[in-house]
Amino acid sequence: MIWSWEYAFEVLPELLAAFAVTLEATLAGFALALVLGLVWAIARMAPLRWVSRTASAWIELVRSTPLLIQLYFLYYVLPEYGLTLSPLVIGVFALGMHYGCYTAEVYRAGIEAVPRGQWEAARALNLPRRAVWLRVVLPQAIPPTLPVLGNYLIAMFKDTPLLAAITVMEMLQTAKLIGAGSFRYLEPLTITGVVFLVVSLAASSAIRLLENRHAVRR
């Protein structure tokens, strides 16, 4: 028998403990991505040409290049500037920066999808600028973006194993170490894969449910 159920159950607890790290990285990274995305999106829409152009170029660069290189970059460069951070924090930062460029595009698309007429009507009612954004535009811009943001959350979740490359003890790294110790890689790696599969399928279904409920209301 190539597969041993006994061994699988033996390594399961350690892997599930590492799953907590995976989750931590995902949620923290995503929170950062949501915030940074807003910053990039605003920069992109800035009236100053050099600001918006730089922001666009930055977003394009980060989205077209591998996350792994960006991760290495931060891992090696940040200490040179005197910042000694744990690998997990560096990983979260890299994930947030990378996916921030995706969320920025989502925000931009969401805002652009609000019809011009809404802006004009709001101004015609003499609403102050703040109210135009908070009461008219954003409430219409945000709901359609939620499923897309949800998909990026799942994508980020599936990218957390990259943090293994900078020694973060998330699931893949843990599975590799277990395997290296016992020379039995099949069970830990398969369990890792299955956990990812179950979580992302559940999350995708939840997003679809959310989408349907939103669609019905319109």
Partner: peptide, 21 residues
């Protein structure tokens, strides 16, 4: 569903270690 739902890096390692078995 399987290949979209799991991480590319995990798939890579799995094939690298499991195929020889």
């Amino acid at each position: 569903e399987v290949f979209r739902g799991t991480s590319a890096l995990v798939q890579l390692f799995w094939f690298y270690f499991a195929l020889p078995l």
